[in-house]
Design a protein around this nucleic acid. Structure first.
Lengths: 230, 230
DNA sequence: CGTGACGTTGATATGATTCAACTTGAGTGG
DNA sequence: CCACTCAAGTTGAATCATATCAACGTCACG
C-alpha cells in the first residue's frame, strides 16, 4: 500500500523496506478530526487510506480549502516546512495513516542511501505547489463549470498516480458537495446546479463517492486543462 | 539599495560586500517586457527598482496574477526551483535589476560564510508561499471590498519591509486598475466602483501610483487581516 | 420510524460582468 | 501654445452568474 509513494519516483530496496516497517506505527483518525492544527507542532504522517484537506476558516465561518490529501500523501514530512504545513488539516473520511516521525529523523540526517526517497518527497511537494497555482487560476478567472472540469481532471491524474483509479475516467472522489464548494469558491447551491448541468450534458456521472468522467476530451477543452504554455 | 534584502534577516559584512559588487551587472527592463518565460531557462535577478508580477494567461486572454515583485525581491535565485518560477514574470513598470547568476552559483556551492544570505532567501520564499495562501483565501471566499482591504494591507507590510513606504499608511502602488483586477479576480469596472466606494467611505486615498491607507484599524477588521489563528 | 447528513429545488436578491460611451491627464509633434 | 493621441479611469444600462433563503426529498442508521 505505502508503495504508492513510488508513483513519484522509483525507490531502492532499502527505502522500500524502511517504508514497510513504518506500518507498525499505525493510527486512525475520525472524519472531521484534525491531523494538524496551526500553531501546534506537526506530527509527520503518511496517509494509507482515506482523504483529508488543508483548509482555513474565517471568523464568520466561511471556509476555504487549499487542497486535498489522498492515500500516499504525506504531512509534515518535509524538512523545510512550508506555510502549507501551518494550515489546519482535517480528515474528510476516516483516515488510516502511519506515524512517520522516525522516517523524518532518518531523512533529516541526510543519508545518501535514501536519496531517492528524498527526491520523491521533493517532487511531491513541487506538485502540491503547482496545484496551488492551478487553484488560484481556477478561483480567480474560471467559471463554475470550468472550475469543476479542471478540478476533476486534476483529481483524476492524482488518483491515477496513486493507483486508486479503476479505469481511465473512473476514480474515487469521496467529497460532499459542501466540500467541493468550499474548495472551488462557490456556494453549495450553485455547485449543485452546475454539477447537474454537467451530468445532463453527458460530461460526468457520480455515484456514492466515485466520479466517472465520460468525455475526457470535451472536459479538457472546457477547462483548458494542462496548457500552461511551457 | 540592494541592502533592502536585509529586511528578511541580518547579513554579514562579507555577504553585504558580495551584493554590492553585483551592481556591476545592471540591466533595465521595459514596461510590459518579460523577465521570465515558462519553458525558457530563468536568469537569476534581483530587482533594484520597479515592479513586476507573476502571471498566467488563458488562451482566450483572461489573465490571473499570482503575485507581485517589488524592489529587493529576487527571481530564479533559489536553488530548488518552485513551480512559481515556471510562470511568466512581466514588468509592470520599468524595472532596474542586477544579474545574479554569479550569486546563485556561489550560493549553490553551499559556502558556510553565506549561511545568513541563504536563510534570508529561504525566508523570502516562505513569505511568497504564505502570500499564495492568502491569495487563495481572498479569491475563494472574500468579497470585492474584503479582497482589496486585505491586499492593500499585505502590500503595505511588504513595501514597509522593503523600506519603500513613506509613512505608516502611505506607500507606492504603481498598479493600474486592470492589473489590480487581474490579481484579485474581478472585472475592471467592478474594481473601479469598489475602489470609489472605499474612497467615499474614507478608507483610502490614491494619487499617481501612491496609496494612502486612512483607517488601518477599520481596514484590518473589514479584511480580517492577519488572524490565521496560530 | 425518527433523526440527521446530504442532496435537490424554486423564488428572489445581489454582486459582478459586459459593452459602449465619455472624461481626464500626460505626453507628443506641429 | 495648441491640437492630437493614447492610456487610464469613470459612468450608465442591460444582462448574467452566482448567492441566499427556505423548503422539501432521500437515504442510511440507530
Amino acid at each position: 500500500m505505502v508503495r504508492r509513494l513510488e508513483g513519484q519516483a522509483p525507490l531502492s530496496d532499502i527505502e522500500r523496506g524502511l517504508l514497510g516497517k513504518l506500518s507498525v506505527f499505525r493510527e486512525s483518525i475520525q472524519t472531521g478530526d484534525a491531523l494538524t492544527r496551526p500553531g501546534k507542532p506537526v506530527v509527520a504522517r503518511i496517509i494509507i487510506a482515506g482523504w483529508a484537506c488543508r483548509q482555513r476558516t474565517l471568523p464568520d465561518g466561511r471556509r476555504q480549502i487549499f487542497g486535498f490529501l489522498i492515500p500516499g500523501d504525506a504531512v509534515g514530512l518535509s524538512t523545510a516546512s512550508s506555510p502549507l504545513e501551518e494550515v489546519s488539516t482535517v480528515a474528510l473520511t476516516r483516515v488510516e495513516c502511519v506515524d512517520a516521525m522516525i522516517l523524518k529523523e532518518i531523512l533529516s540526517a541526510g543519508d545518501e542511501r535514501h536519496a531517492r526517497l528524498q527526491r520523491a518527497l521533493r517532487s511531491a511537494r513541487r506538485q502540491e505547489h503547482a496545484a496551488l497555482l492551478d487553484h488560484i487560476m481556477r478561483l480567480g478567472r474560471q467559471s463554475a463549470q470550468e472550475r469543476l472540469c479542471h478540478f476533476f481532471l486534476e483529481m483524476r491524474d492524482r488518483t491515477r498516480a496513486a493507483g486508486l483509479a479503476e479505469s481511465d475516467g473512473l476514480f474515487p472522489l469521496p467529497l460532499t458537495q459542501e466540500v467541493l464548494a468550499d474548495a472551488l469558491g462557490l456556494s453549495i447551491v450553485h455547485l449543485n446546479r452546475t454539477l447537474q448541468q454537467m451530468k445532463r450534458d453527458g460530461l460526468i456521472r457520480m455515484r456514492s463517492g466515485w466520479l466517472d468522467l465520460l468525455d475526457m476530451h470535451r472536459l479538457e477543452i472546457l477547462a483548458d486543462y494542462g496548457s500552461h504554455d511551457e
